[in-house]
Design a protein around this nucleic acid. Structure first.
Length: 856
RNA sequence: GCCCGAGUGGCGGAACAGGUAGACGCAACGGACUUAAAAUCCGUUGAGGUUUUGACCUCGUGCCAGUUCGAUUCUGGCCUCGGGCACCA
């Protein structure tokens, strides 16, 4: 063949890998044949694979691509392994970005959201994601948020939803309140601007009532959830054990008791002063008619001017002042001066503390500044120390503690609590840092809270039959700090369902995290009209077997969804306590060491990659880039590498197809009498050295890929194993001439290679599969199995060490008896050289691994 | 400050029960093909040294110790980075 002809052939379209063409083609075919769905039938075991659903912001970003590719591969492999797989998709469609964009652009949030959902869906299909597209859910549709509202009413009935006045987080940029979970180190989770405090009446879900169960049920998640995520949640819930101790105010006329919370009741004898939070309601009472009033008010004013962030920072100087009053230490009857100070917060514990400067760093610092006495009551060695240079916060032996002297502080803690309880002076208490979940939002684009306020009847829940409370379309939703719905006459004005009089609707909408706290249940019966979900479907599919999504939701969505599930369990609506059995947090994709962000202009969109190289390259690269749970940096040359591999795969398979066409198995079969099967050939020793190596590699690869994907979520190593197989197949093709090639081996290895790759790169494998003459989709072929006998090496490289250092190695039969291994090692010239004339002290033989000769 | 997690070539990473450190890929270099380039294929690639050119030796997984015949892996201490909590009593 001359050069021109060869060139011509290379340029023929069916010869070279054209990602765009084949991907568009197969997307069309799959749409028609329903290959996207992984549901099969209920005779098979079920498996529910779920990725956190997206907020429809337009086209998916790289984080989405990573999240969904991981989920897609897992879901596809499980389906091929014979599971009935639920792998749904939907859109978390309420939320601020659409509303903010609307304020700028004038496009209604509903319209932009729906347009974005269409973009998103198109992109997901373009990337080859195997979702139940017919069962999508969209949280901003009335047939979904009707049930979000239904759940609100359920919580209300159960006494778990309440409106209360509280000091709440206020984001001035978003013009709404925020839940505690949505404030990240003093800043708004969404817009990053500083969060201030306001006292407002707001709706809360009482998640605090579930604090202990959220902790206890973590034992159901151990093994399925990464420990670090559970640790984050534990920290967030912030359980601490201690005691409430009642201090009586020294007062002739009134009997005022101020309780405090402490985790160190064993230090009660060390109390030398007492602090109440400056905004504590008792402060005014205490200083009334007192000479100290003016000074206390002055200091209080200074403290209240400090922002919450300032005040809760350890950097800020501690300030406070004496109130002129005293409390009585219930244990020893001592008179203790009462102070106010900026480091005592009203929100935590009881808003007042007993101060023990000898054993608390903060109290120590304060005492030093204001010359308050320090009394040591816990000593590391049981002796009293002249002057403490700093607070001793560890355990020790109790001193200066009356009848408790000489007792270990851990023991003393229990004894003092018992004493307090017996004498009605206090009690054992558990405190949590977790706060109730604030779900009201003063914004338009959310599910309206289904509550009516009536002058006669008070707060009245909207009757179930009147749901959904529809979100009106025509509303002026410019943020004013008031809910936009309050300006909508048609929305606000209603009739009280109880007395029929004119009444007004609640105008706040719900936090979108409420919508996402139950969506995984809706997926089980997305079109059900009688209830949020059909019980039998939820019983069948739930809980989610594998959940995948970003760890940034550890203290938000993931804790809310767990809470919701427990409430539904208590209501008898579900029979499981935890929604997600296993959770895998994928890492983020950075660019240039920084988070991709529009403002920084360092963004690579999935569409750029699939438009240039194809979706298969995108998927392959995003899995190969590094361990799925680690933060990775985007690399353009890495993408090139992935693309190159697909080209290499393409050429290999196309060449093998050609070869197989020329050398049909039927032809070969005529020449032998035995049934031809590669495994038989292998077992019968009919394969040549390289053939045997290739066949073994094939089985080893099946084993490794299966385990890496399903047991370890280790996609990068699974792919590298497949690359090794491809390299070996190339080597075989290059080394062995066509007339000597094993037809069966080529056929089997090519087919299985494609099947192994098909969940990762669904398009190219489908195309090559069809080119092999297959009628059915590769995505319906069952997952290959491996044979341990074949996968097992017959030779292993045994390491010969002298004094732990590698000196020689030799390929020896697997499972060689230790004595023989030892003999082999001692026969090695190199080993003998290193031993020389020295005495052998010890010989260590590890079967199938090594021999180590220890010499003096 | 407290609690987690991680530190391995020029780079991303592998080594999944304490046993060959650097799989696979990127980048770089050399070669083949080509008039040339691209693409492709093959090879080399941790550092240092010895060298009869076949190979051989020493060091090397953040740092310092320890346990062990043997440590990237286990233990203790330290350093750096990332994350969580944080005047939380």
């Amino acid at each position: 063949m001359d050069r021109m002809e060869r060139k011509k052939e290379e340029f023929q379209s069916d010869e070279s890998y054209n990602a765009k063409e084949i991907e568009e083609k197969w997307a069309r075919v799959w749409e028609k044949t329903g290959v996207y769905s992984l549901k099969s039938d209920r005779s098979k075991p079920k498996y529910y694979v779920l990725e956190m659903f997206p907020y429809p912001s337009g086209e998916p970003h790289m984080g989405h691509a990573r999240n969904y590719t991981i989920g897609d591969v897992v879901a596809r492999v499980l389906a091929r392994k014979g599971y009935n797989v639920l792998h749904p998709i939907g859109y978390d469609a309420f939320g601020l970005p659409a509303e903010n964009a609307a304020i700028k652009s004038g496009i209604h949030p509903k319209d932009s959201t729906m347009a974005n959902i269409n973009k998103m869906r198109k992109a997901l299909k373009r990337m080859g994601m195997s979702y139940e597209f017919a069962d999508e859910i969209i949280t901003c549709e009335p047939d979904y948020y009707k049930w979000t509202q239904w759940f609100f009413l359920l919580f209300y009935k159960m006494g778990l939803a309440e409106k209360k006045r509280a000091k709440v987080n206020w984001c001035n940029s978003c013009q709404t309140v925020l839940a505690n979970e949505q404030v990240i180190s003093g800043r708004c989770e969404r817009c990053d601007s500083e969060v201030t405090k306001k006292v407002l009446a707001q709706w809360f879900f009482k998640i605090t009532e579930y604090a202990q169960r959220l902790l206890d049920d973590m034992k159901l998640l151990e093994g399925g959830w990464p420990e670090r995520v559970l640790t984050i949640q534990r920290n967030w819930i912030g359980r601490s054990e201690g005691a409430i101790v009642n201090f009586r105010l020294l007062d002739d006329s009134k009997d005022i008791v101020i309780p405090i919370f402490t985790t160190r009741p064993d230090t009660l004898y060390g109390v030398t002063f007492f602090i109440i939070a400056p905004e504590h309601p008792l402060v005014d009472e205490i200083v009334k008619d007192s000479d100290y009033r003016k000074e206390v008010e002055r200091v209080k004013e200074i403290i209240l001017k400090q922002s919450d962030i300032e005040r809760s920072s350890t950097e800020v100087e501690k300030i406070g002042c004496f109130t002129g009053r005293y409390v009585i230490n219930p244990l020893n009857g001592e008179k203790v001066p009462v102070w106010i100070a900026n480091y005592v917060l009203l929100e935590y514990g009881t808003g007042a503390i007993m101060a023990v400067p000898a054993h608390d760093e903060r109290d120590f610092e304060f005492a030093q500044k204001y010359n308050i006495p320090v009394r040591e009551v816990i000593s590391p060695d049981g002796k009293e120390h002249e002057k403490l240079a700093k607070a001793y916060v560890d355990e020790g032996i109790m001193i200066n503690s009356g009848i408790f002297n000489g007792i270990n502080s851990v023991e003393g803690r229990k004894k003092i609590v018992s004493y307090l309880e017996e004498n009605n002076l206090g009690k054992f208490t558990i405190n949590y840092k977790l706060k109730d979940w604030l779900i009201s939002r003063q914004r338009y684009w959310g599910a309206p809270i289904p509550i009516i306020y009536c002058d006669n009847c008070g707060t009245v829940p909207v009757p179930e039959k009147d749901l959904p409370v529809l979100l009106p379309y025509n509303v002026d939703f410019r943020p004013t700090g008031m809910s936009p719905l309050s300006y909508s006459e048609e929305f606000v004005n209603t009739i009280c369902p109880e007395c029929g009089q004119k009444a007004k609707r609640e105008t706040d909408t719900m936090d979108t995290f409420v919508c996402s706290s139950w969506y995984f249940l809706r997926y089980c019966s997305p079109h059900y009209e009688k209830a949020p979900f059909e019980r039998s479907e939820v019983d069948y599919w739930m809980p989610v077997d594998q959940y995948i999504g970003g760890i940034e939701h550890a203290t938000m969505h993931l804790i809310y969804a767990r809470f919701f599930t427990k409430v539904l369990y208590d209501a008898g609506l579900v029979n499981f306590k935890e929604p997600f059995i296993k959770y895998f947090p994928h890492g983020v994709v950075n660019l240039g060491g920084q988070k991709m962000s529009k403002s920084k202009g360092n963004i690579v969109n999935p569409s750029q990659i699939y438009n240039k190289y194809g979706a298969d390259t995108l998927r392959l690269y995003i899995l190969f880039i590094g361990p799925a749970d680690s933060i990775v940096d985007w690399s353009d040359s890495g993408v090139e590498g992935a693309y190159r591999f697909l080209g290499r795969l393409w050429r290999l398979v196309v060449a093998n197809i050609k070869f197989l066409q020329k050398n049909s198995i039927e032809e070969k079969c005529k020449s032998t009498s035995v049934v031809l099967d590669c495994k038989n050939q292998f077992m019968n020793g009919e394969l040549g050295k390289l053939e045997k190596e290739l066949y073994r590699k094939l089985h080893q690869t099946i084993k490794k890929v299966t385990q890496d994907v399903l047991d370890r979520f280790s996609f990068n190593t699974a792919i590298s194993a497949i690359m090794e197989l491809v390299n070996l197949m190339y080597k075989y093709n290059d080394t062995v001439s066509d007339d000597k090639k094993n037809v069966l081996l080529i056929k089997e290895s090519t087919e299985k290679l494609l099947v192994l790759l098909s969940p990762i790169v669904p398009f190219i494998t489908e195309e090559l599969w069809s080119r092999m003459g297959k009628q059915d989709s590769i995505h319906r072929v069952s997952w290959p199995t491996y044979d341990e006998e074949v996968a097992k090496e017959e030779l292993v490289t045994i390491i010969f060490q002298v004094n732990g250092k590698l000196r020689d190695k030799k390929d020896l039969p697997v499972d060689m008896p230790p004595e023989e291994m030892e003999k082999e090692a001692l026969n090695s010239e190199k080993v003998r050289k290193f031993i020389g004339s020295r005495e052998i002290v010890k010989k260590i033989v590890v079967p199938n691994k090594l021999v180590n000769i220890v010499i003096k």
